[in-house]
Nucleic acid binder design. Structure first.
Lengths: 183, 183
DNA sequence: CTCCCATACTCAATTTCTTGAGTAATCATA
DNA sequence: TATGATTACTCAAGAAATTGAGTATGGGAG
């Protein structure tokens, strides 16, 4: 149910089209809530049907028209309600960790190569998030930004995403080394 | 599809009943692959139907009988195949991060309280994983254990789980403080 | 002048996961 | 002697996610 709310949160202080949201989810949001674009469009349609968003057609020249979505008052209420409601921890689900768990059935070098690859992907993502966070801070020290910015939500969540990716990178490197040390 | 493989990996060096697997998934495995017990039983039945596991009824006195599952050769092959196959990163999906993302719609103090609560939960889980990892090491230094132990899979995966929970704890504490500093 | 890429989506089958309930036995506690 | 906790599962409805298409337009590279 949190995809709905991730969409609502993404529209808190701006209007975005479905396509822009798919970009946003691919890059930034995916570090804490992944969703495929098809799923986004389905969810946007439901949110609109439920009156939590309104869509407006925007005619463009030189490219296909788009529909941009904006939060309604009901949508904002729903998001507020969601942030208050207790939820149980949703934990990691990572293929790669399942592979590590089953390491005894794996070729150590092949598994280590996959870990290296993932380390590189995580590093790239962490670097990207670093840039995004720097853009949000806009030159200010973090403390200042957190105290004064209007909406710190994306910064807080983005920080967690970056931590996750940095940790993933470190762990992958460590685990790959451990596997290789046995061969 | 990784739940299948998480089950196969859990049965790599021992036989376990469905119920024992639900315990294992609730406590240890859940830090990198969460699944409800109902789902486990469904998956176990499929795995048996596919010939990747065999189930044996074990008659017990003083408690209900149970069915223990063991890997078949086909199951081991399937797990090996899985560890070799490239997979795309499955990322975090966490309600709490979505709430943080939507912080602008939230009551800061109420959100901070939820973060505190989660920090405590994460700490408890990290402590539990710490114990489990110590048990696996059985007094040896980590380096030694990783070089000499038969099956280091659970240790590798458990380590990642512990890192995740420790990071979660730290982030929750940090984010709660940031929210409170604004009030 | 063709092909690929980016924009901007839609449809639908299938699988997977969640949610909520229910069964049945034994043991310890009050 | 009832009550709840633990072991050991099962069933099923519905929501959500995955997978794999497909449509249509315009711009730029070769």
């Amino acid at each position: 149910m949190a995809l709905r709310h991730a969409l609502l949160a993404a529209l808190l202080d701006r209007e975005l089209s479905g396509y822009q949201l798919t970009k946003l989810f691919d890059l930034g949001v995916s570090s804490f809530w992944h969703a495929a674009s098809q799923q986004l469009y389905v969810e946007l349609a439901k949110l609109e049907a439920d009156g939590l968003l309104t869509g407006h057609e925007v005619v463009q020249q030189g490219r296909p028209n788009k529909r941009v979505f904006a939060l309604t008052d009901a949508g904002l209420d729903e998001l507020t309600r969601f942030t208050l409601a207790p939820t149980k921890p949703t934990s990691i689900r990572d293929d790669l960790l399942v592979k590590a768990y089953g390491a005894h059935a794996a070729d150590p070098e092949k598994l280590a190569e996959q870990l290296d690859q993932r380390a590189a992907q995580s590093k790239a993502k962490a670097d990207y998030l670093d840039e995004q966070l720097a853009k949000l801070r806009n030159g200010q020290p973090e403390e200042m930004y957190l105290r004064t910015a209007e909406n710190i939500g994306p910064y807080l969540a983005g920080t967690r995403g970056r931590m996750y990716e940095r940790e993933q990178e470190a762990w992958c490197t460590w685990a790959a080394a451990a596997l290789r040390a046995r061969a």
